[in-house]
Nucleic acid binder design. Structure first.
Lengths: 209, 209
DNA sequence: TCCAATCTGTTCATAGTTTCACATTAATAA
DNA sequence: TTATTAATGTGAAACTATGAACAGATTGGA
């Protein structure tokens, strides 16, 4: 069932499904159809059914999907049925903002350590975590079983931080710095690039005015 | 030259090109080949050539692309040859972090107003901009010629803020709230969803450990 | 019980995207 | 001047993703 390769587009939709399913569950709703999901998430219902079918037969004909069951399955698919420890590197404004999200993530992915080299930041607390210097990163990654790194340092430091994370044995990186950074093939990297996102929006503005 | 429809994938790569070209220009480099760009940005050179060729013939055979000229062209394509005024709604941690980026953006897209309804935030200053309440948003959007909105309010307020922006006549929205929000077809919306990005990374972690 | 309605999983067609491969052009060096 | 090298722009091929359509399963009501 899991032998074949799942496209990135499919994987990226799974968390979207998961989040909305969680909302529905909280609203005490028991089942949902692909049609309803599609309307809510602006997706084609056939696409949703197909996405889910890559991983198994989770629905019931005539009924739809049992929400609790589907949540459980998607969590398994995304490996969120265990706690994944995450390190944040860069305790600036953005880093602090992201550590706020920890509350949303707490059951699944957890920011477990924050690193920054600025002397005025080291040892300060951000949401009950002490900021630590980068020279202990490698050791702390091992100790805390950290598998994912989030880079929120300035652009020109991003590559060296990534190198450090790779050396520490991290498996995946989410990079917020506005730069393309390079990592070995065995490390997964996603870019969350606010400026690029904003610039591409400009393309769609009306001409002239 | 611009009659045909350009795919979103192409548009999203343009700011990536632009950013790296700007770096090269700063380093006093005059020309670049698609091969070199591709190596640096992890893209296939043919793809880069084709992307650019959608908009015109900017390169020279045997030479490559003149960096200054290409920067100018991409700016035109992305409509960044004018100042685009942007409103930020939500003066929380994330909103403050994003307004830091204003310095990177200052020549092109500029955060011109910040809105938030929390009484303890209204009238405080963030990088020389006063936080204003949402009830003046519509008026201020007109006055300041604001065309783009960035949503950094909590999830459950995101849709109503989007509605307000649409009503104020905004043309494009960048949504940071972890929710799918709905807008009319004439408004362009992009989602910058940190939690979804992080969750999808988990999929690529090694099984077991 | 049986019909109508609902909704999944999947096949197939369509649409879109990426990559290859090459004709063409420009610069450089012999 | 003439080969050689470097690099673009683009047609065609390969690959990927999306969407329509339908068989089959389940429910609920007549």
């Amino acid at each position: 069932m899991k032998a074949l390769h799942i496209s990135e587009a499919v994987v990226r939709r799974m968390p979207i499904y998961l989040r909305y399913l969680n909302e529905m569950k909280q609203a005490q709703i028991a089942t949902v159809s692909s049609q309803e999901l599609g309307k809510r998430l602006n997706l084609n219902p056939a696409q949703i059914r197909k996405d889910l079918a890559y991983f198994g037969e989770f629905g019931k004909k005539g009924i739809g999907y049992d929400i609790s069951y589907l949540i459980q399955k998607i969590r398994q698919i995304l490996k969120l049925d265990q706690i994944i420890h995450v390190a944040l590197i860069g305790a600036g404004n953005l880093g602090q903002a992201l550590s706020n999200y920890n509350k949303y993530l707490k059951d699944n992915m957890q920011i477990t350590a924050i690193f920054d080299n600025a002397p005025q930041k080291v040892n300060t607390k951000i949401h009950h975590l002490s900021v630590e210097p980068l020279n202990v990163l490698k050791q702390r990654v091992k100790e805390l079983d950290i598998r994912v790194g989030i880079i929120t340092v300035p652009q020109h430091e991003a590559q060296s931080v990534a190198d450090l994370l790779v050396e520490a044995g991290i498996e995946a990186i989410l990079n917020f710095a506005p730069a393309i950074i390079h990592v070995p093939d065995h490390v997964r990297i996603h870019h969350a690039d606010f400026t690029a996102e904003l610039y591409s929006l400009a393309y769609y503005l009306e001409d002239e005015e």
